[in-house]
Amino acid sequence: MGEISIKINIADRVYPLKVNMEEEEVIRRAAKIINDRIKEYQDNYAVRDKQDLLSMCVLHYATATLKAERKVMHEDTDVTEKVYQLDQLLTDFFSK
Rank of each mutant, 00 (worst) to 15 (best):
Q85A: 03
I4L: 14
F93W: 12
T77H: 10
I27F: 06
K32H: 11
I8E: 12
S5Q: 15
E3N: 14
K71P: 00
K32P: 07
H60P: 01
I38P: 13
L59H: 04
L17P: 14
I6L: 10
E69C: 03
T77A: 10
D52T: 03
D87H: 15
Y45S: 15
I33D: 12
E22I: 10
Q42I: 01
K39W: 04
I4Y: 13
T65W: 05
F94Y: 12
V79S: 04
R37C: 03
K67S: 04
V47A: 11
E25L: 11
P16M: 09
L86N: 01
E40K: 15
V58M: 02
M21G: 02
Q51L: 12
E75C: 01
D92K: 04
K71V: 01
T63N: 07
D12N: 15
Y15C: 11
K96F: 08
I6Q: 08
N9S: 15
E40Y: 15
I10D: 07
E81H: 06
E81D: 13
D49R: 03
R28S: 01
D92G: 01
R48C: 00
C57N: 13
Y41V: 10
F94M: 04
R13P: 05
M73A: 07
D92A: 00
A11T: 13
T80L: 07
E25D: 14
F94Q: 08
V72M: 09
G2E: 10
A30H: 13
V26M: 15
F94L: 06
M21Y: 06
S5Y: 06
T65G: 03
F94N: 05
I10H: 09
T91S: 06
E75K: 01
Y15T: 07
V58N: 00
